[in-house]
Amino acid sequence: MSVDPHTGQFGDDTQVRAELDNDRPLFLQVKEAIEEEILAGSLGPDDQIPSNSQLVSLYGINPVTVHKGVTMLLDEGIVYKRRGLGMFVSRNAPARIRVRYQEAFKNDYVEPLTQRAEMLGVTPDELHALVDESILAHQPPQASSGIADSAAVKDHTRRKD
């Protein structure tokens, strides 16, 4: 992530999205960018979120809009304020954001996917296979070795039989 070095710095593991679209309200995009970080775990409970000044610098947008986005997070209880210090992630924020994003998941991701598949002539079976393939590809190495282990165990039990 690129932040102007003279204006401030983020923790190395913080990767707030630095690109905004001009055709959606900016304050919403600022709010969502921080929520995405909380969802991804790069901002954990009781972590400090970037200051307004850092967000202004990062996005090159006016402070009024940044303030509006951060105030919305505060009003929804996603962050809490420590006077003179800044804003921090609430304990229950990750769970609450996950629930809200799960509700939007069908409309935002699944519906467009099935519509697109239909348009391209991808059959339901092919779509299922593609989704399974993608899930497997994204599984962390430990999980796949877990599958191998359980297969080995199964093998072992079978041999025992």
């Binding site: 055709d23 959606r24 309200p25 900016l26």
Partner: peptide, 12 residues
């Protein structure tokens, strides 16, 4: 500006 953007169009 954000009220205008809420209509789904960039200012430009």
């Amino acid at each position: 500006c954000d009220v205008l953007r809420a209509k789904g169009m960039a200012l430009q």
